[in-house]
Amino acid sequence: MKINMSHGSGGKQTEDLINRIFLKHFDNNILNRLEDAAVLDIKGKIAYTTDSFVVTPLFFSGGDIGKLAVCGTVNDICMMGAIPKYLTAGFIIEEGAEIETIDKIAFSMKLSAEEAGIKIVAGDTKVIEGQGGIYINTSGIGEIVKSGVSISNCQKGDAIILSGNLGDHHAAIMSERMEIENNIKSDCAPLVSIVKNLFDSNIEVHCMRDVTRGGLATVLNEISSASNCGVEIYEAVLPISNEVRGLCNILGLDPLYMANEGKMIAVVPGKQAKTALEVVRKSRYGENAQIIGHIVDGSGVTMITTLQGSRILDVLYGEGLPRIC
């Protein structure tokens, strides 16, 4: 069955949609009350963020828009030294979308939310004219467990830990869009385990950032600029899978500028680097983590290449389009 304008009318069909899909999957004592707003019990400082998701295709190898919508917001909360608690979800659905598709997406959100330990406590649905597109906005709140984690807090001598392989999400989406057959899967995942374990192990984390749009090079430039420091990384230790490397060679893409949805960097004091690396590697989604570089004097981001040359890394300009030859 397809969505039509009456599903957004606020009447019987809207109620059916909410009951049959969203309440079924998101089921929790706060949402189930169906009040105008969720009433939350939270102590101390909170981290609060929002993000919108418009990905095509809706389903891709390793994930879907629902998983992305939960993990994206969860990870942003985590990066501020917070443990995710509550999430809201707004759906903008174009008429013609299959109800079964929405059901699958909501189920996927439920699974990701459970894994991340976050409750989906409020939501909204709007139906607009169109051709079956689905867009999701999520916003989320987390309890700060470690204050002071910030991109402006990096200090000379700090080590930069990258939690795993670069470029998987971008490569998976490009492959789907271009109908290239391969085994590349999106890395879309909640990073709660890595962050919790770092704090539980008393690592003095100075800064965390998830490596999403713009890629690693862009994130490192943001750090360099906010913390007024230089960043030096080493090409030889960057974790990149052979398949992603191969696809990049064919399409002329650079893994340093490709989006990820389940990768982060943690900037930690140099003397805790090895311990922190072990902690990340033992955490879920952190098994390929590496110490990829350090915070240094100066400004900008420099990469020491495998040949021991130096390459300056700027932010991403424009969109990474596949090249011609």
């Binding site: 990469m303 020491i304 290449t305 040949l307 040359g309 130096s310 390459r311």
Partner: peptide, 9 residues
């Protein structure tokens, strides 16, 4: 040449 930092070498 840029990616490998050849000029610096």
């Amino acid at each position: 040449i840029f990616k490998n930092g050849i000029r610096s070498l």
